[in-house]
Design a protein around this nucleic acid. Structure first.
Lengths: 355, 355
DNA sequence: GTGAAAGCGCTAACAT
DNA sequence: ATGTTAGCGCTTTCAC
């Protein structure tokens, strides 16, 4: 089990021939066209097309023979040709900043499940939190002439913005309602989430509150949460007692190390607000390791409402965000034809055992 | 923040016109074709095409005018047409059973990053662990004439198998090498992972070992691990002292509840093997809650090597699987043209603090 | 109810 | 170096 191994599979019990680098075996579905099916069924192409798409009229007799021919030949329709010939495509582009944070797979999951049921295929793009990368991805996805585009966030480069506006398809911006959108916007206010988090901590009586976050320059929604959080503290005559901002993406490890650092830098903290649950769970683990009493010695608050936060021995106080629901709602809007609108979904503050 | 709200965005500071349901504004990129660009630049279509793809020869003067025209018109190439006209597509289909388990986003992440660099777009499909759903997804993805198909697992319905064999493109089956593949196989042996896990527990002196798993009928790779685990125990004259198999997908909660149940059903267990780290972390949390000493009173062993397992106060003993690497290696094989082969990547047994 | 024919927007010979 | 032309496989009028 040391090195990667590539071994020929002569012994693995399969045809040694027929790699895709060779000509496909006769009778294989690849390369069979509608013309073939029509000829084999003894009907015209258009008739075969109508039958295969159950659209238009044809006798049940021709129907049977076309279906039979298609099955016998192993016909696989060519959607590329179909899309080019018809007007609308059945592809939907989805652009997310990352796949490493479960938030975005959740979003994808919601979107993909609704899209799949409506006959759409999801084409994904991952920006790595880079707006310039997003711009390139948008151009690339648009070139597939998708029926619509789902994209996380409201911030784009000017060129990306122009492309989205000029695309002539539904654009759904997800997960953020703090700002102006291009077409449809589905999400919630991160700023309000931050404000609600701050109010909760204040109400609970915490006064020396620190912040442990990850790279805010990249994660704009986390930055908006923090901004809402900070301004609410300010309105209550408080300020963030200390902060540590990792230059890495959010992770459990970054949260754990971040908490360790803020504890060593800032005296007498009674609560810490984390940029998200991953970070907060890291902090929680640190407290467990060091025997720091929660919430007596230190209170912890996260964001997202992940399963790991909910199932921890002390459920984390956090805000549950409707990630899957945002994906679902966004996908449903692809086929809508109303004017631009903003769909706001609820987040829910969860009073766990860590505050 | 009670109900979902849809409000018109007249106040949100954007043009109330120009939804995609209306005609796109004049000068918008949508609808601009290569013909337009060529005419505008005063060259032939093929010349414009060559310039835009930097393929073939052309003077730097025409190059400039074509590029200028394209930029001015906001030209977005139509890859659908391009794909139909040329031979190969730049779409790659990726089929995974789920997005709810971070394992598959990790796989996607690895694959997508390599594919993106090579100019491919990922089209994803999620089967929900349903082989019949997979069959439909394969047919659907194949209709987009992808350059290749990545699919998790070796098991398929007979029809799916036939479609994959007949597709005439590279088929990469991922994450499992226990069985015969169709074309390329990239992964590791789950059976061996189960065996290694068992050997570890036996070596550490555990004798009354239980198993807490999730629906094995669906997760075939988890079933293979358990089989390897069990057979290794048997070879050592041991047997699984008790088992609980949740009928739900793996989750932290299922692991926590599963451990609670096995502890109440089976006496004197000294170790528990979980179907994966999610389940194991659930078990770990239960032990923390109940004050069960780890590993003194009970040892825990997982599978996958997730971050949460690594960062827990007591790092979980588990097997780190090369998920991202499998995705990367699989993506690289899309453009390969060798004969069918099996690529085995290493997994790594992590001796954590829970055994 | 069915077929013929004209594209969809592009690429790839094949001229020039 | 550049233009002309013939498709790629399908959908969609439009006749019959």
């Amino acid at each position: 089990m040391r090195d990667d191994a590539i071994r020929d599979d002569a012994l693995a019990g399969r045809r040694a021939s027929a790699g895709p680098h060779l000509v496909s075996p006769a009778g294989s579905g690849a390369g069979v066209t509608l013309t073939d099916v029509a000829r084999e069924a003894g009907v015209g192409e258009s008739t075969a097309s109508r039958v295969l798409r159950s659209h238009g009229s044809f006798s049940s007799k021709t129907r049977a023979s076309v279906l039979e021919a298609a099955a016998r030949l192993g016909y696989v329709p060519n959607r590329i040709a179909g899309t080019l010939a018809s007007t609308g495509s059945k592809l939907v582009g989805i652009i997310v900043p990352s796949l490493a944070n479960i938030v975005f797979p959740d979003l994808l999951r919601g979107a993909n499940s609704v899209l799949g049921k409506a006959g759409f295929q999801s084409v994904i793009g991952v920006t790595d939190y880079d707006l310039v990368g997003e711009e390139a991805l948008i151009a690339s996805l648009l070139s597939w002439r998708p029926a619509g585009l789902l994209v996380a966030g409201l911030e784009h480069t000017p060129r990306a913005d122009a492309m989205l506006r000029g695309a002539g398809i539904r654009i759904i911006e997800m997960l953020d309602t703090d700002g102006a959108g291009i077409d449809m916007v589905v999400g919630f206010s991160n700023r309000e989430a931050g404000r609600a988090s701050a109010r909760h901590l204040i109400t609970r009586g915490y006064r020396r509150i620190g912040y442990v976050g990850h790279d805010l320059a990249l994660d704009l929604r986390a930055a908006k949460r923090f901004e809402g959080f900070r301004s609410t503290l300010a309105e209550a005559g408080l300020q963030v007692a200390g902060q540590v901002i990792a230059s890495a993406p959010s992770s459990i490890e970054a949260g754990r190390d971040g908490l360790a650092r803020i504890l060593s830098e800032t005296r007498d903290l009674d609560a810490v607000y984390f940029s998200n649950d991953d970070m907060a769970i890291g902090g929680y683990f640190l407290c467990l390791s060091r025997g720091i009493g929660i919430p007596g010695e230190l209170a912890l608050f996260g964001h997202n409402g992940l399963e790991v936060a909910r199932c921890a021995p002390q459920p984390l106080s956090t805000i549950r965000t409707p990630r899957v629901e945002v994906g679902e709602a966004s996908a449903r809007l692809i086929s809508s034809d109303g004017p631009p609108a903003v769909v706001t979904l609820d987040f829910e503050l969860i009073e766990g055992a860590t505050t």
